[in-house]
């Protein structure tokens, strides 16, 4: 490729840096709502089409069947400055789409796991996933009306989290609340990096 003869206007600013944060959690916990609360446009949707080849079990002919599945991801964009753009990606809920998670998690600076105290167990798969990958994450307890209020340390205990993992309350509909959650995640991710660097130096 001929990089020398760029047709971009001379003096055009370099392209910004893009980073991403994942928003995970169980079905209907408020992932899309959270993305929409801080994004500059309403959440966008993108799709991956997956083709799986398999032999149908009920199919006596044994003919190979191709099944296509569409996995949808919601995402939003926050332009932080001329040279920095933040993308928030809601992870697809179904456990069988782990490989889409792998693509999403690659290069992500961290994740927010949304939890609903009425069904805490729904966020176990997300927590297991990010723990396993070493992706920094915070747990944000989305306060739905009518849900019994738990103390954050009770949630921490129930989720069997490393005591360093931040657990915060949030309202996924409120921009300020979501901003706070994201800032908590970034500060925690920086702290973790520092600790890992120090551990590596020892």
């Amino acid at each position: 490729m001929d990089y020398g003869r760029s047709e971009r206007p001379a003096g055009a600013a370099p392209l910004p840096t893009a980073i991403k944060i994942l928003i995970a959690g169980g079905f209907g916990v408020g992932k899309t709502t959270l993305v929409g609360a801080v994004s500059e446009t309403r959440p966008l949707r993108t799709e991956e089409v997956l083709t799986e080849t398999g032999v149908g079990i009920d199919d006596l002919s044994g003919v190979e069947e191709k099944t296509t599945t569409t996995v949808a991801m919601d995402f939003g964009r926050i332009t932080l400055s001329d040279d920095l753009v933040l993308y928030l990606f809601g992870t697809p809920g179904q456990d069988r789409f782990w490989f889409v998670w792998d693509e999403l998690a690659l290069g992500a600076i961290g994740a927010v796991v949304l939890a609903d105290t009425r069904r805490l167990a729904d966020c176990f798969p997300s927590i297991d996933y990010f723990e396993g990958r070493g992706t920094p994450f915070v747990v944000a307890v989305n306060c739905f009306e009518g849900a019994k209020q738990y103390r954050l340390d009770e949630v921490q205990g129930a989720l069997d989290l490393d005591p360093d993992v931040p657990v915060v309350l949030c309202d996924a509909r409120e921009r300020e609340s979501v901003k706070e959650v994201l800032i908590t995640l970034l500060e925690y991710a920086m702290k973790l990096r520092e600790e890992r660097r120090r551990a590596a130096a020892d």
Partner: peptide, 17 residues
């Protein structure tokens, strides 16, 4: 992962939002 300066820029950018 991006370097530290990117993390700081994101935090500042979010605060200023």
């Amino acid at each position: 992962l991006p370097d530290d300066s990117v993390f700081e820029a994101v935090i500042n950018g979010l605060r200023a939002l």
